[in-house]
Amino acid sequence: MPVRRGHVAPQNTFLDTIIRKFEGQSRKFIIANARVENCAVIYCNDGFCELCGYSRAEVMQRPCTCDFLHGPRTQRRAAAQIAQALLGAEERKVEIAFYRKDGSCFLCLVDVVPVKNEDGAVIMFILNFEVVMEKDMVGSPAHDTNHRGPPTSWLAPGRAKTFRLKLPALLALTARESSVRSGGAGGAGAPGAVVVDVDLTPAAPSSESLALDEVTAMDNHVAGLGPAEERRALVGPGSPPRSAPGQLPSPRAHSLNPDASGSSCSLARTRSRESCASVRRASSADDIEAMRAGVLPPPPRHASTGAMHPLRSGLLNSTSDSDLVRYRTISKIPQITLNFVDLKGDPFLASPTSDREIIAPKIKERTHNVTEKVTQVLSLGADVLPEYKLQAPRIHRWTILHYSPFKAVWDWLILLLVIYTAVFTPYSAAFLLKETEEGPPATECGYACQPLAVVDLIVDIMFIVDILINFRTTYVNANEEVVSHPGRIAVHYFKGWFLIDMVAAIPFDLLI
């Protein structure tokens, strides 16, 4: 008679799926529990143990900040960024110097990925580790590398530091407007667009060049630039800015003055950032001319202004700041037409079709709590990747769950009947059967004279019903998954307890 339990259901295979997918890609990662103190490590794979030199037993239950890997060259700011990422709910990448158990130093890129439950609360953290440099290539500990984003994938490793954006290309926007319009339909740009040429040739750093990471940081200074100062900065030398009595002219307006920039070969870094931020506020060169004239017309309804409409929906549905990093990277690809469009465009503009998908598509409701890094690593669709929660398995109709209350009560009843059979069957065979043979035949009273025979008949009927119930009862397979398919249940029961239950259900007393 089957006594099969499996009270692990309803099970959740999400954690096993993450481990299996990460292991298949030869990654070095740990999984931490966000619900406990210090976000203790609950799993670390073999790749991480080989990377740091510690065994799994030495890593388990330690804080996922990996303070046991810190050393003299470990930056405090990087460690603080990892700790801050564990307090938030967004994906974050941090470069930090770690030390192995043998004392060797290596520069590592740590990717902190939160995993949320159905309520939107962070319950786990996945920390992925990628070695960037070994100890002989690690720089000085005073050099802070965590304020910069990861290198873009479309640049060669040897040319990542030679990417320079020439400031004269930004200063000569109005001069290039006529050349853009003359391109017409034969050019790649839309009317009114501004073409910015980027020099990728390796050259020595000069005062006129600005690194790509500095251009990325310009967006942080746009908020500090007032509207009046932006307007004066875009007017140009024809209309000098008016300053109040006793007030000095704005240095932001002076930063885009061609006369002032041409007199000296070098520009201050602050002026460069502010000038680029001011130019980015204009949607095209037409807006710059309109600002000089004193009238700013409404933005025209053409394809170039609607190019950012799908980007707005993608940004609203993005799951991490990696989408913004990807957008900034692609927006700086050289030799393309940049349409400086305000994100607050007309909502009635139709979304044009684009061959290049900048932001990841909208994630469906079932995966809105899973970050983009987890979705990318697992390579699963929205119909396959579940949320991290207890999910009731989908069972067929008329199927009994093996952990249901009805099955528990039924098993206790069958257990009592088995005990009765084990006690009274030998007793009936030894004593009652002998008395029946010696006594007179009682054929007239039937079952009324033999109450134990009636009980034995009921017990046999219950055993037959138990066999039928076992054909529709779920079970737990070797992978700790609840199986509810009727065919698989029948095959599993035939290979197991079916023969024993059938022999126990045969009414031998009635056959004798």
Rank of each mutant, 00 (worst) to 15 (best):
residue 2 P to M: 04
residue 4 R to F: 15
residue 10 P to H: 10
residue 11 Q to K: 09
residue 11 Q to P: 12
residue 15 L to C: 09
residue 15 L to R: 01
residue 16 D to L: 08
residue 16 D to K: 07
residue 20 R to Q: 12
residue 23 E to Y: 01
residue 26 S to N: 10
residue 30 I to S: 01
residue 31 I to C: 04
residue 31 I to T: 01
residue 33 N to W: 03
residue 36 V to I: 07
residue 36 V to N: 11
residue 42 I to K: 01
residue 42 I to E: 01
residue 43 Y to I: 01
residue 44 C to P: 01
residue 47 G to N: 12
residue 49 C to R: 03
residue 50 E to M: 03
residue 50 E to Q: 15
residue 51 L to T: 05
residue 53 G to M: 06
residue 54 Y to Q: 01
residue 54 Y to K: 01
residue 59 V to M: 06
residue 64 C to K: 01
residue 64 C to P: 14
residue 65 T to P: 01
residue 66 C to A: 03
residue 66 C to Y: 01
residue 68 F to T: 01
residue 69 L to V: 01
residue 70 H to N: 03
residue 73 R to N: 09
residue 73 R to I: 08
residue 76 R to M: 10
residue 76 R to N: 15
residue 77 R to C: 06
residue 81 Q to A: 14
residue 82 I to Y: 05
residue 90 E to M: 09
residue 93 K to Y: 07
residue 93 K to L: 14
residue 94 V to S: 04
residue 95 E to M: 13
residue 96 I to G: 01
residue 98 F to L: 09
residue 98 F to E: 01
residue 99 Y to Q: 01
residue 103 G to I: 01
residue 103 G to W: 01
residue 104 S to L: 08
residue 104 S to Y: 03
residue 105 C to N: 07
residue 106 F to G: 01
residue 108 C to A: 11
residue 111 D to I: 03
residue 112 V to C: 06
residue 116 K to L: 08
residue 117 N to F: 05
residue 117 N to Q: 13
residue 117 N to D: 06
residue 126 I to G: 07
residue 130 E to N: 14
residue 130 E to D: 08
residue 132 V to D: 15
residue 134 E to V: 06
residue 138 V to Y: 06
residue 140 S to L: 10
residue 140 S to E: 14
residue 141 P to K: 15
residue 142 A to S: 11
residue 143 H to I: 14
residue 143 H to A: 09
residue 146 N to Q: 15
residue 148 R to P: 12
residue 149 G to F: 09
residue 152 T to F: 09
residue 157 P to L: 14
residue 158 G to Y: 15
residue 159 R to S: 08
residue 163 F to P: 15
residue 166 K to N: 05
residue 169 A to L: 03
residue 170 L to H: 15
residue 174 T to F: 13
residue 175 A to E: 15
residue 178 S to V: 06
residue 184 G to V: 10
residue 185 A to Q: 05
residue 189 G to L: 15
residue 192 G to M: 03
residue 195 V to N: 01
residue 195 V to M: 03
residue 202 P to E: 10
residue 202 P to M: 01
residue 216 T to V: 05
residue 218 M to L: 06
residue 222 V to F: 15
residue 227 P to V: 09
residue 230 E to Q: 10
residue 230 E to M: 07
residue 240 P to A: 15
residue 243 S to D: 13
residue 246 G to K: 04
residue 247 Q to D: 15
residue 249 P to K: 07
residue 251 P to Y: 13
residue 252 R to F: 09
residue 258 P to H: 09
residue 264 S to D: 04
residue 265 C to V: 12
residue 268 A to D: 03
residue 270 T to A: 12
residue 272 S to A: 06
residue 279 V to D: 14
residue 279 V to Q: 09
residue 282 A to T: 05
residue 283 S to D: 08
residue 283 S to M: 04
residue 284 S to N: 07
residue 286 D to W: 04
residue 287 D to H: 04
residue 291 M to P: 11
residue 293 A to K: 15
residue 295 V to M: 08
residue 296 L to Y: 05
residue 301 R to M: 07
residue 302 H to I: 09
residue 305 T to V: 07
residue 306 G to Q: 07
residue 308 M to L: 07
residue 312 R to L: 07
residue 313 S to G: 12
residue 314 G to T: 09
residue 315 L to P: 12
residue 316 L to M: 08
residue 316 L to R: 05
residue 317 N to F: 09
residue 318 S to C: 12
residue 322 S to M: 07
residue 322 S to I: 08
residue 326 R to T: 08
residue 326 R to P: 11
residue 327 Y to R: 07
residue 330 I to E: 08
residue 330 I to A: 11
residue 332 K to S: 13
residue 332 K to V: 01
residue 334 P to D: 15
residue 335 Q to W: 07
residue 336 I to S: 15
residue 339 N to M: 01
residue 341 V to T: 11
residue 344 K to S: 05
residue 347 P to K: 10
residue 348 F to N: 04
residue 348 F to A: 14
residue 350 A to D: 09
residue 351 S to N: 15
residue 352 P to R: 09
residue 355 D to P: 12
residue 357 E to L: 05
residue 357 E to F: 13
residue 359 I to F: 05
residue 361 P to W: 01
residue 365 E to F: 09
residue 366 R to H: 07
residue 367 T to P: 12
residue 369 N to T: 12
residue 370 V to Y: 11
residue 376 Q to L: 03
residue 378 L to I: 10
residue 379 S to P: 04
residue 385 L to Y: 07
residue 386 P to V: 01
